[in-house]
Structure formats: structure tokens, C-alpha cells
């Protein structure tokens, strides 16, 4: 009946999330294509994390989510990772009692092509040299910024086509934020799709090719990098 869906990247259509009948995300649609960085900003409680977790299959939802045209509805998170999607969760959640290297090893469990493990590891260690230096250290001993690098590195070890990050700048020093976003720029230029959830509007709008504003579970605006300097638009973005 239906023709094959040949679209690449991540497509989200009419996504809805509710907790005990209370809606958190109310039917949002957007897409993230290869080589693009897309921002998703909005105040606390807007439904940003719910959106990412729902895409990963970690919280119940309705709507259609496709990766490279394949419907991933109903897949458990560990299956979703194997379709080429990876999430760096809010609060980093590295495995604190394991070494940096073991964290990265675990990231590779979901690799579709195991034969390229070594080069992927080298790539991540080049991207975040600090992880090479602290390879045998317990992840719990790293600073917040280093843990964020590890969390991103761990996600990259699954070799995702689409990398999603939930507030990667949260609690980091300005230099640590720079390190993270420089790395994300490399990832984007390598042809991967990046979806960044942030509360820091100005910064995210300037970095991303396109930024959606989420308010109360609804996308109210779509912004371009130029809008980062537009005070009116920013006010609108913050206060709806």
C-alpha cells in the first residue's frame, strides 16, 4: 500500500507524551537531517527531555518517529540505539564506578559495525584528548565538563547517525561549554545529525542551523541563526 519512506535522518510527527493523563508534549513535529544541528529550546518543564526520551522509546508516546524512513515506534531504547540514534541524557549519567575506558567500551555495545571499533575509539579520543589521559580513572572522579565529554564520547561509540543531547551545557564552566560545542561542530561537519536541547537560548540559536522553541509541549517558533541577535524574537522565545 504505502510507498517506501526514503527520507534520511530523524522525522518526528505529531509526537505526544503524557504522564498519568497530564500532557507534557502535545503533538509536535520536526525533522533533523544529516549534517544539520537542530536546537530545541524552552523553559524548564516545557517538555524537552520528555521529547528526547520519547524518541528513544524510554517513555510511552503516540505519534510517528522514523529514522532513515524506518518507523521506530514500539522499540525499546536498546533497540532504538541500534537504528542509529543516540542520546546523551540530561545530567550526563556516566557510569561513575567504571573507568573512562569501560564507559566507552559500553557505548560500543550497540555498534552495528563492530569491526570499526578501534578506529571509532581513536576518533573519540582525538575529539576529547582528556579521555585518553584519564582512560583508567573512575568516571566518578572526573569534573562535570570531563564527564560531559565522556557521556558524548560514549554516545558516539555506538556510531550514531543522529546524536541527541539533553542540556549538555548544564552546570559546566564557560570553557567546558566551548569544548563541548566545538566537538559538536566537528560531529556535525562529519555529516551526522545533531539535536541539541538547551535552556541557553541565544547560544543555541547561534550554533544551530535551525532552532525550535518549545513551550508547554508545543513548538511555538522556528528560528534561524540570525535571530540570535534579535531581541524581540528572543523575548518571544523566552516568554511565549
Amino acid at each position: 500500500m504505502s510507498t517506501a519512506d526514503t527520507r534520511q535522518g530523524l522525522h518526528v510527527e505529531n509526537l505526544e507524551v503524557a504522564y498519568n493523563g497530564v500532557p507534557a508534549v502535545r503533538g509536535i513535529s520536526f525533522e533533523v537531517n544529516a549534517g544539520e544541528a537542530i536546537g530545541l529550546i524552552g523553559p524548564n518543564g516545557a517538555g524537552k527531555s520528555s521529547t528526547l526520551l520519547a524518541i528513544m522509546g524510554a517513555t510511552p508516546r503516540t505519534g510517528v518517529v522514523t529514522v532513515h524512513g524506518h518507523d521506530i515506534s514500539g522499540l525499546a531504547p536498546e533497540k532504538v540505539v541500534r537504528t542509529g540514534l543516540a542520546l546523551v541524557p540530561e545530567g550526563r549519567h556516566v557510569f561513575t564506578e567504571l573507568s573512562v575506558m569501560d564507559n566507552l567500551r559500553l557505548g560500543a555495545v550497540a555498534r552495528r559495525d563492530k569491526s570499526t571499533y578501534k578506529s571509532a575509539l581513536e576518533h573519540v579520543l582525538d575529539l576529547f584528548p582528556i579521555l585518553r589521559d584519564f582512560g583508567h580513572r573512575h568516571a566518578g572522579l572526573l569534573s562535570g565538563g570531563q564527564q560531559q565529554q565522556l557521556a558524548i564520547g560514549r554516545a558516539l561509540m555506538s556510531d550514531p547517525d543522529i546524536l541527541m543531547l539533553d542540556e549538555p551545557s548544564l552546570g559546566l564552566s564557560p570553557t567546558a561549554v566551548d569544548t563541548v560545542f566545538e566537538a559538536l561542530d566537528v560531529v556535525r561537519k562529519a555529516g551526522k545529525a545533531v539535536l541539541i536541547v538547551e535552556q541557553r537560548a541565544e547560544f543555541t540559536i547561534a550554533f544551530s542551523d535551525r532552532t525550535y522553541v518549545l513551550h508547554d509541549g508545543v513548538i511555538t517558533l522556528s528560528l534561524k541563526p540570525e535571530d540570535a541577535d534579535n531581541v524581540e524574537v528572543l523575548t518571544e522565545a523566552y516568554f511565549g
Binding site: 528513544m56 524510554a58 525499546a76 549519567h93 564506578e97 567504571l98 567500551r105 555495545v109 560514549r154
Partner: peptide, 23 residues
């Protein structure tokens, strides 16, 4: 690898699954 997966799951099951460790 299997042992590490178990250790990670015991420490943080939700994150382990997000990382791709089969429940």
C-alpha cells in the same frame, strides 16, 4: 564485556538501556 554490561545495568539500569545494553 557481558560482565561490564551487568555492572552498568546494576548501577543505572535506565542509562544502561539508553546506551544500548539489552535489558
Amino acid at each position: 564485556s557481558l560482565g561490564l554490561q551487568l555492572k552498568a545495568a546494576a548501577a543505572d539500569f535506565k542509562t544502561a538501556r539508553l546506551v544500548g545494553i539489552p535489558a
